[in-house]
Nucleic acid binder design. Structure first.
Lengths: 324, 324
DNA sequence: GTGAAAGCGCTAACAA
DNA sequence: TTGTTAGCGCTTTCAC
């Protein structure tokens, strides 16, 4: 049988209340008594039941985290940041994946209602409808769309794209072609305007844009089409690394040397980016920092702070490898 | 205020016990009463408090998972398998990382004692000492060492290495060089003997072994040394993909064509393996399946089944790309 | 400084 | 079939 607070109280010849006081460092306990209680606790290896404490206090010291799936590498990075902060602060992390669409959401929402956790972190949630009724403190990590009313953390896509542009400009490239991500995503918009603005500011016209699509095949197709067309371009900026890798494939097939003839810059700093030939120059996300920032913010909300009204934007940075 | 079972009982004009019976589908409730209760539940959006249920039942419907860190890609894959099974069975997943060594373990152990979860899954745990006192059902996923007394799930490293050997043998390669992983690891031993045995069975001597070490640099160094030495070899088997990538680097520098002159096979099927040039032929782990298997096993233990006495070994497979 | 008692929201005998 | 009564293991007034 597990040792309970009652057992500790009995052995220390005090009441449960006093044990509780010692447990929670509520002064107002005689030093000698405290020592006696602590001795019993040490001797029995007593640990308060998290469930009972949660029930009595109304707070579980647990944070729920909803992720879109665990196979994409950046999710692990963000999650590590979340776990670091949570573990340092003594919070437990309840993980849920949204791999089964609406079902997942329903299930997660049930947990919310079940008061399983004190607050929640949502990574690119498929929907936020279920939040309209809940009052649980929430922080969202997402750069695909705005979530008005919810504290949000996102990478600085705009500045990241500017970094890419300035790097190409510094190399004397005046007519880049841009392979974009899915339209309508805030992320795509930001990367697009960040890049374009930098070129405008340097006195150049709007770079040529073509739609890519998150896969190596899409990047390959886009560049093949670009080469077949008459559109001149002296460099490439892809909105994501996979597309950039596809672009690299197409350039290799066409025997166009990278970066000498056409420098290429990607976005995301996927693990694979470091291992291509030539290795991909790209813009890195502050994935782990996003997790940390979002979690720190959430814990502040739990402590009673009021949510920031503007998104928390974290800096991206340029990783120079061999393609640009 | 949250709606509680008492509130539902009041509105449906029944006792809490009856609501509880309806909630848990304990027949023995009049159909009409049940309908009335369900209506109130639907109308109020009532969800039982997980904490209270856990306290009353003595089971939390939660499984604790300890991972060595979330940045390594296979961890995410395993975890996805775990999450899939857990979510399908209505269990919650409490995640903990062991990035801070002994500290992490202590913290995790505390959760165990706090009865936070019904069972636990350990991914390559840094130590299992803390388990000696606990009685919580446990399943370990690990191929670095044996954990006698604990149900274990691991990939079939032996058979995987044999697959690699047979592939090279089929290509007529009789004198491969093997770049091993860290010595003393069960995994290293298994990959080594699996490969060697296949060569022995084919009537060839024991392949030349050199120690590698999980990094690209180590692979590069190993092959550079191999080339400088007089040791002849007609193919390479690396115990992990990163080492294989380093080997590829060294071969490229030496202008030795892959796979024509020297075919190369790695192990792990890291995300990067698909994106190198030439793309790496390698042995893939059943990462996700390991997560699923381990979780299914754990849930069976929770249901009262007795633990299997032998490790659950899951099949690896050969992924043929361009290097062999 | 300490204890008694009530209560957190549920389940599970035991009666009726 | 249903309600009553105890808990589950803790925290937290409120007395003393």
């Amino acid at each position: 049988m597990r040792v309970t607070i009652a057992e500790v109280a009995r052995r220390a010849r005090v009441s449960k209340a006093t044990v509780s006081r010692v447990l929670n460092d509520r002064g107002e306990v005689d030093a000698a008594t405290a020592v006696r209680v602590r001795d019993v606790i040490a001797a029995t290896g007593y640990t308060p039941s998290a469930g009972a404490v949660g029930l009595a206090r109304g707070r579980t010291q647990t944070v729920g985290v909803l992720v879109p799936g665990l196979t994409r590498p950046w999710v692990g990075d963000v999650l590590q940041g979340v776990a670091d902060v949570l573990e340092a602060r003594g919070y437990a992390l309840l993980l849920h994946t949204a791999t089964r669409g609406a079902d997942s959401i329903t299930q997660f929402a049930r947990q919310v209602n079940a008061n399983t956790f004190d607050g929640q972190l949502l990574l690119e949630p498929p929907s936020t409808d279920f939040l309209r009724t809940a009052t649980t403190p929430t922080v969202i990590i997402d750069d695909r769309a705005h979530h008005p009313g919810f504290p949000t953390v996102a990478p600085d896509n705009r500045a990241g794209a500017e970094l890419a542009a300035r790097h190409l400009l510094a190399a004397g490239r005046t007519t880049p072609a841009v392979i974009t991500g899915p339209p309508r995503l805030t992320r795509t918009h930001d990367r697009s305007t960040g890049f374009t603005d930098a070129y405008h500011r340097a006195g150049h016209p709007t770079p040529h844009h073509v739609e890519g699509g998150l896969t190596r095949e899409a990047g390959h197709a886009a560049v093949t089409a670009l080469l077949a067309a008459t559109t001149p371009f002296d460099s490439l900026f892809a909105h994501d690394d996979l597309t950039a890798l596809g672009a690299l494939d197409a350039l290799r097939e066409a025997r166009i040397p990278v970066p000498t003839a056409i420098p290429v810059i990607g976005f995301d700093d996927t693990p694979a980016a470091a291992h291509t030939h030539p290795a991909l120059t790209t813009i890195a996300h502050p994935a782990r920092e996003m997790g940390e920032t979002a979690t720190t913010l959430l814990l502040r909300l739990l402590a009673g702070d009021k949510p920031p009204t503007t998104p928390q934007i974290l800096p991206t940075h340029l990783v120079i490898r061999e393609t640009a």
